[in-house]
Write a protein that binds this DNA or RNA. Structure first.
Lengths: 107, 107
DNA sequence: ATTTAATATTGCAATATTACGATAATAATA
DNA sequence: TATTATTATCGTAATATTGCAATATTAAAT
C-alpha cells in the first residue's frame, strides 16, 4: 500500500496525471508564470521572486524539467532557462483534449 | 516543514494548483473519463470498472467532489452522480488561460 | 590556481497521499 | 422492522511530497 497503482491505468491516463502533478503546486505555477513574463530567458532572480529557499526552488525546477517543460543550459554560473515551446503546446493540447472530450449531456 | 507554503502565493495560483492536484492521479482521470463515456449518470459499477477497492474509489470521488466537479445525490442506494458542467467549463477555462497566457518568445 | 557566485545534491523532519480491511451509515425493499 | 445493497468513514501501513540547512558542484573571473 501507499504507492499508486499506475499499472492498471493507460499510458495516456498516467501521462496526463503526471503532467497535472507538476502543475499541482502553486510554487511551480508561479515559477512558470514568472518565467513567461520575462522578455527572454530567466537567470538568477527566481529565489528572491518566489520566496522559497534556493534548494526548494531547485527541486521545483527539477520537477518541471523532468516533464520537459524547461530548456536551457543547466550548468555553471548564470544558468538560463526558458519554457520549451514544443512541449508546452503538447501539454496544452493534452489538457485541452481531456477537457473537450468529456461528455456533459447529463442530469 | 512538510506542508506547502500556500500563503505566499496568489489565490489564482493556489486554485489552479488545487485543480491540477485533483487531476494528478490516473484513477481520477479514469473516473472522470468513465463517467463522461456513459449516456447519463453513473451508478454502482465504478469499482469494477477502475480496479481499486471500494473505499479507495470513494476517497477519489470525494477529492473530485471537493472541487465541485461532481453533482448528484450522494446518499442511499443507487447513488447517481455526473460531472457538473458549469464547474467543468470553469476549470477548462482556467487551464486554457494558464496555457495561453504563457509567453513563448524566447530562446 | 584561487576565489566567487550560482546551482545541485544530501540528509532529515514534517506533512500529505494512496490504498485497503473492517466497520458504520444509509435508504430502498421485503 | 429486518434485510440487503450501496456508499462513507475509520484505522493503519506504506509511500510520496515539501521545505530547508548544510554541503557539494560547477564554471566564470581574478
Amino acid at each position: 500500500m501507499g504507492s499508486s497503482k499506475t499499472h492498471i491505468f493507460s499510458i495516456q491516463q498516467n501521462e496526463l496525471a503526471q503532467a497535472a502533478k507538476v502543475l499541482a503546486h502553486p510554487a511551480r505555477i508561479a515559477i512558470l508564470e514568472y518565467i513567461s513574463k520575462q522578455e527572454g530567458c530567466i537567470c538568477n532572480d527566481l529565489v528572491d521572486e518566489i520566496g522559497l529557499a534556493q534548494p526548494t526552488i531547485s527541486q521545483h525546477l527539477n520537477e518541471i524539467k523532468k516533464i520537459g517543460l524547461l530548456k536551457g543550459t543547466y550548468e555553471g554560473k548564470n544558468l538560463c532557462y526558458c519554457i520549451d515551446q514544443e512541449r508546452w503546446l503538447e501539454l496544452q493540447q493534452a489538457f485541452n483534449n481531456f477537457f473537450s472530450n468529456i461528455n456533459l449531456n447529463c442530469c
